[in-house]
Structure formats: structure tokens, C-alpha cells
Computed example of a mutant assay.
Amino acid sequence: MSDCSTCIVRNRAICASLETVELQALGNLGRKLKIKRGETLLWEGDPAPVVANIIDGVLKLSVNLQDGREQIVSVMYASDFIGRPFGKESPYSVTAMTDAELCVFTRSAFDNFAREHPDLQNKLLQRTLDELDRAREWMTLLGKKSATERIATLLIELSERLVVEGCSPINTRLDRFELPMDRQQIADILGLTIETVSRQFTRIKKDGIIDLPDRRTVVISDRARLELLAEVA
């Protein structure tokens, strides 16, 4: 591993709580790994030999339904932590939605390190609680929000989570970005049909809230109205 102090997600990743010496010790246990879009890091139900910080890129967590369909249960971004510390099997598959770069640790080495560093264990607990909160918010989205509100909520989240640290202040939100997923994946994430997703994009564009220069690019033209659609306080 290179010097962890130069990592672009250093201040947001799970290791942010560590002192310099501790950070270097953890860095010595890890390695950088680049994976291509569509490549799977962990498979649902299989042994989970690694955990990782996402340095760059977007990954999905998914499970297979009994009828063979895939259900995307979460989308993970730069600085997010993936894997199951202190666990033996992965409850979901972890697959890259874009080309990605990860900081990977063997689970056993990371578990041993975490046991010796209470601050890191506290950070793991906080991340777990944050993910639980996100899961509850997503349940509300899927259970109560309309198709338009779901699309707007996803676009707001992407505009905030795709910011690259070092290029923009941490709190800056993007008004132009590339979608890391296609229309079918958006439909799977939001519990909609692909036809509904396409209609909603067209509707929001027609209302002048966003522009769609091509299939992947989104330009937010009126953030206040988009937030109103998403019911963002």
C-alpha cells in the first residue's frame, strides 16, 4: 500500500479515526485493487475472505430472489466500507457498477486489527447504524413514495455521493454527473419498471428540472424543485 495519508477518501473512510502510526499499520495490511465494471468481489452465501474501503467508483449489493431475479439492496460509493467484519459468509453479492478502485484487507487481518483498536470498532458500529438508518429510509422510499419521488430522491443522492474529494469541497453537490447505472438497474433499485423509469425521466426533463444530454448524463437545472419532488427538507 502507498501512504494512506494521501488517500483521497482518507477523511471520510472508516479509518479516519486512526492516528498516523495506526493508519500506517493498517495500510501495511491492505492492498489496492482495481476491478472492472460488472466484476464481482463477493458472492452471496459464499465465504467472505475480504473487506474493503471504496476509494473510487460505485458498487452494488444484491441478492438473488427465488425466481432467479436480482434485487439490488444498496448502492455503495467512494469512502463506503464493504464486507462483513467478524462474519464468515457474505449475505449479498458485491459487484462493480463502474470501474472501481478498492483498498482491500483480508477479513482475518482486519478483524484482528479492529480488536486491538477500539476507535475503529466504534467507527464500524457507527457505520452499521448509519447503514441501518439508510435502509429504513429506503424502505420508506419504496413503500410510500411515488415513482416521481423515487427518481428525484435517487438523483439527489447521486449528486451528493458522486462528489470526488480533493476536486471539490466536501459539501459541494454536483449539478452535472454521469449515471453509474443504466435504466434497468435504476428500475431494480427503485422497485419500478424500466418503462416507468423512462417516463419519469422524460417528465422531469419536460418540466425543466433536469436535462439529459445523453443516456448517462444528468444535468440538474433546478435543484430546489428537484428537492421538492424528493421531499427533501
Rank of each mutant, 00 (worst) to 15 (best):
R150K: 15
G68H: 14
R223S: 02
P213G: 14
E160P: 01
E231G: 05
G87V: 06
G83H: 12
G191L: 11
D46A: 15
V51S: 08
V21P: 07
L23D: 05
N28M: 04
P91R: 12
T98M: 01
I220P: 01
R127H: 13
R183K: 10
L229E: 05
S79W: 01
K36F: 11
C103G: 02
Q121I: 07
L190M: 10
A25Y: 03
T172C: 06
N64L: 15
C15Q: 11
C167Y: 13
N11P: 05
K36A: 11
I170M: 11
A187M: 10
L162D: 06
A48L: 07
K32H: 09
T217I: 11
L129A: 14
L59W: 00
C103I: 03
R183H: 09
V219C: 11
Q184K: 15
Q71F: 04
P47Y: 15
L65P: 00
L179Y: 01
D175L: 13
G45N: 12
R69K: 15
S221C: 06
I194T: 13
D119K: 11
E137Y: 12
D46K: 15
F177E: 03
S5Y: 00
A230G: 09
A52L: 08
V58S: 02
L226V: 08
A109E: 08
S168P: 02
Q200M: 13
D56A: 06
L33S: 04
D99I: 03
D207T: 05
K144H: 12
S168N: 09
I14G: 04
L33Q: 10
R84V: 14
G143K: 09
L179D: 05
E39R: 07
E22Y: 06
D211G: 09
G83S: 10
S159M: 05
E227S: 09
L124V: 06
L125A: 13
D214Y: 09
I170Y: 15
E165H: 09
S108R: 07
V163L: 07
M181W: 00
K34D: 13
G166P: 01
R199F: 10
S168F: 12
R161K: 14
R69F: 13
V58I: 08
K205M: 12
L29C: 04
D111L: 11
L65Y: 05
I189Y: 14
S146F: 12
R176T: 10
G38W: 13
S198L: 14
L226G: 03
L26C: 02
G38N: 08
A13L: 05
S2N: 14
I54N: 03
P49E: 10
Q126W: 07
A224G: 01
D175F: 10
L179T: 03
G166C: 04
P118Y: 08
E101T: 03
E149H: 07
F177L: 02
A147K: 10
V75F: 00
L179F: 02
A16P: 00
D67I: 11
L162H: 02
T172I: 07
P91H: 14
A224I: 09
C7L: 11
E39M: 06
N28K: 12
P118V: 12
N171R: 12
C7I: 02
N171M: 08
S93C: 05
L102P: 02
V63K: 13
S74D: 15
C4Y: 00
A152N: 00
E44C: 04
G27D: 04
Q126L: 11
L59M: 12
L229A: 05
R127Y: 13
E22V: 03
N112K: 08
E231L: 07
K60A: 14
L132I: 11
L154G: 02
G87L: 15
A135D: 08
